[in-house]
């Protein structure tokens, strides 16, 4: 018995020592919205520079919670924090990537981008007021479609999520009833439906349930061949979710005058604009106790801005325009310090 335990102990010890060689791993956690692109960036960056980035997609709520608890090097969230709140926690926030949130459906016989929905109908479906796919309101928008007499299963997020924040922010803007009953949040009190964990969970449930409607980040719809819909935008046109329609919505944003880079991109004007567009943000501390790690982190983000656009576009995201990257990096110089007060980024 004793010998057995001793052997176990020795093996454990050796294994731990064997891997104790120094190499840097940066730990980040948060939004699931940008997870595919962060994961691929990290994969490529490690091959190029040998610096590892462990990004766990635990949800935007989690990203904010874990950076506040200081259990990670950076947090990520799709719901921007307000300037006052950033100040309170001594956090700094900047946008990393943009993308669209798209409603996805699963109805036998209805294919991609076939169904048209307007803001009011979408809100009423998620409020549980429209319960069947052959409801007159949906039929009126889609005269050519054969809609089944099937109950609608709403699939929403079960966890705290920036994707939910962007989606509910949109519904909040366009529906008074939504504003009164539900509101905007990373997790809200849903009037109807089932919850999936992460964009992944929602995708999986929508794929499995005939008659389902959910909302996911565009990349997840693209990767999984989920059925998306056309949405009526502010200009009254039905647009399909594409990188172009996201870019069109993003083009109207005035980042230079957004304190703390607080910016919401839903329901933007423009005939081409996709109405549910959003940015995903990185959260780090203004004062970094370990400047080497912080610099490595910023170097990674800089690399991603400058060389990551290809990967991002392939996955269905909108990279940050060069103008905004400059703005962000200027802000790094000004705001991010080590404990002595020296700037971390030059």
């Amino acid at each position: 018995m004793k010998k057995f335990l001793l052997t176990l102990f020795l093996i454990a010890f050796m294994l731990v020592m064997a891997h104790a060689g120094y190499s840097m791993t940066l730990n980040g956690a948060g939004a699931t919205f940008p997870y595919p692109v962060y994961a691929q960036w990290a994969y490529k960056y490690e091959k190029l520079r040998g610096v590892k980035l462990n990004y766990q997609s635990i949800g935007s709520g989690g990203g904010i919670a874990q950076i506040k608890a200081k259990t990670v090097d950076f947090g990520a969230s799709d719901a921007p924090m307000r300037a006052e709140e950033l100040k309170k926690y001594n956090l700094f926030q900047f946008p990393m990537i943009m993308g669209g949130v798209v409603p996805v459906i699963h109805i036998k016989g209805v294919s991609n981008e076939q169904m048209k929905l307007c803001a009011k109908v979408l809100a009423n479906i998620f409020l549980g007021k429209i319960r069947k796919w052959n409801d007159p309101a949906i039929r009126k928008l889609n005269p050519g479609l054969a809609l089944p007499d099937r109950e609608i299963t709403v699939v929403h997020r079960a966890d705290g999520s920036g994707t939910t924040w962007i989606f509910t922010n949109y519904l909040d803007k366009i529906s008074k009833e939504w504003h009164k009953k539900v509101g905007t949040g990373k997790a809200v009190s849903w009037p109807t439906g089932v919850g999936g964990k992460g964009n992944e969970g929602v995708s999986a449930y929508v794929q499995k349930v005939n008659g389902a409607i959910g909302y996911v980040e565009f990349a997840y719809a693209l990767q999984n061949g989920l059925t998306t819909v056309r949405l009526e935008n502010r200009a009254g046109r039905f647009v399909a979710p594409t990188i172009r329609s996201f870019q069109s919505a993003a083009a109207h944003a005035d980042w230079a005058h957004a304190p703390g880079f607080y910016m919401v991109l839903t329901d933007q004007p423009g005939p081409e604009s996709w109405p549910i567009t959003g940015a995903s943000f990185i959260l780090i501390y203004r004062v970094q106790t370990r400047p080497n790690r912080a610099r490595a982190m910023l170097t990674f983000f800089d690399w991603a801005y400058r060389h990551g656009a290809g990967i991002a576009k392939k996955l269905g995201y909108v990279p940050m325009p060069e103008k905004i990257v400059k703005l962000v990096e200027e802000a790094w110089k000004e705001n991010l310090k080590d404990t002595q007060g020296n700037p971390l980024w030059k």
Partner: peptide, 18 residues
């Protein structure tokens, strides 16, 4: 219909409560 239990609520939301 979908429901939840105490344990499943914890598993889903614990790391995410900001």
């Amino acid at each position: 219909t979908g429901a939840n239990s105490i344990a499943s609520t914890l598993a889903n939301e614990f790391t995410e409560a900001s």
